[in-house]
Amino acid sequence: RVIAMPSVRKYAREKGVDIRLVQGTGKNGRVLKEDIDAWLA
């Protein structure tokens, strides 16, 4: 299970990103909004 705040999950869904593919850089591997942006870049 991916650790991410609900707002980040929603952001990823809106961008069409599968959050399971994104490498989290936050505490304990948490996926941050910046990680979604970096994955899209």
Results as ranks from 00 to 15, higher is better:
30 R>A: 10
38 A>G: 07
35 D>Q: 01
17 V>L: 07
12 A>I: 01
31 V>L: 06
19 I>V: 09
34 E>P: 12
35 D>E: 01
34 E>F: 14
39 W>I: 08
28 N>G: 15
2 V>H: 04
10 K>G: 04
40 L>I: 13
2 V>G: 05
39 W>N: 05
25 T>A: 03
40 L>M: 11
8 V>R: 01
5 M>I: 11
25 T>M: 06
11 Y>S: 02
22 V>E: 00
22 V>S: 01
23 Q>F: 12
25 T>I: 03
16 G>K: 10
2 V>W: 03
10 K>T: 10
40 L>W: 08
38 A>D: 14
33 K>Q: 07
38 A>Q: 12
40 L>Y: 08
21 L>N: 11
11 Y>C: 03
41 A>N: 13
33 K>T: 11
32 L>Y: 12
20 R>E: 11
32 L>I: 08
2 V>A: 05
27 K>G: 12
12 A>H: 00
8 V>M: 03
3 I>V: 14
34 E>N: 15
29 G>R: 06
4 A>V: 05
29 G>K: 10
18 D>P: 13
27 K>H: 08
32 L>E: 08
27 K>P: 11
1 R>D: 13
2 V>Y: 03
10 K>E: 06
25 T>E: 04
41 A>R: 11
34 E>T: 13
20 R>K: 15
10 K>H: 07
20 R>G: 05
19 I>K: 00
39 W>H: 09
3 I>N: 13
11 Y>F: 05
37 D>R: 07
34 E>A: 13
30 R>I: 11
13 R>N: 15
8 V>Y: 02
24 G>I: 02
9 R>T: 06
34 E>S: 10
6 P>E: 12
2 V>L: 07
39 W>V: 12
40 L>A: 06
1 R>Y: 05
27 K>F: 08
11 Y>L: 03
26 G>W: 03
8 V>A: 04
17 V>T: 02
16 G>Y: 07
38 A>K: 11
7 S>V: 07
19 I>R: 01
15 K>V: 11
13 R>E: 05
27 K>T: 11
7 S>W: 15
22 V>D: 00
38 A>V: 11
4 A>K: 02
24 G>F: 02
11 Y>T: 01
8 V>W: 02
19 I>D: 02
25 T>R: 09
22 V>N: 01
32 L>N: 09
36 I>G: 00
39 W>E: 06
9 R>H: 07
8 V>P: 02
33 K>R: 15
13 R>F: 15
37 D>I: 08
34 E>R: 13
7 S>M: 09
10 K>Q: 05
21 L>D: 09
33 K>L: 10
22 V>T: 05
14 E>I: 10
34 E>M: 15
24 G>N: 04
34 E>K: 15
6 P>C: 07
39 W>G: 03
39 W>Y: 14
1 R>I: 15
4 A>L: 05
1 R>H: 15
3 I>H: 06
23 Q>G: 13
23 Q>I: 14
26 G>Q: 03
7 S>P: 07
17 V>K: 01
19 I>L: 12
3 I>T: 13
24 G>R: 03
3 I>L: 08
38 A>R: 13
13 R>A: 12
19 I>Y: 04
14 E>L: 14
34 E>Q: 14
3 I>G: 14
17 V>M: 04
39 W>K: 08
3 I>M: 06
11 Y>W: 04
5 M>D: 09
25 T>Q: 07
31 V>F: 02
18 D>H: 05
32 L>K: 13
1 R>P: 15
26 G>D: 04
25 T>C: 04
17 V>F: 03
37 D>S: 06
10 K>D: 04
27 K>E: 11
19 I>P: 02
32 L>C: 09
28 N>F: 12
5 M>V: 15
40 L>K: 06
28 N>R: 14
41 A>T: 15
41 A>Y: 13
37 D>E: 09
29 G>T: 03
16 G>E: 08
3 I>R: 12
9 R>I: 08
17 V>S: 01
8 V>T: 06
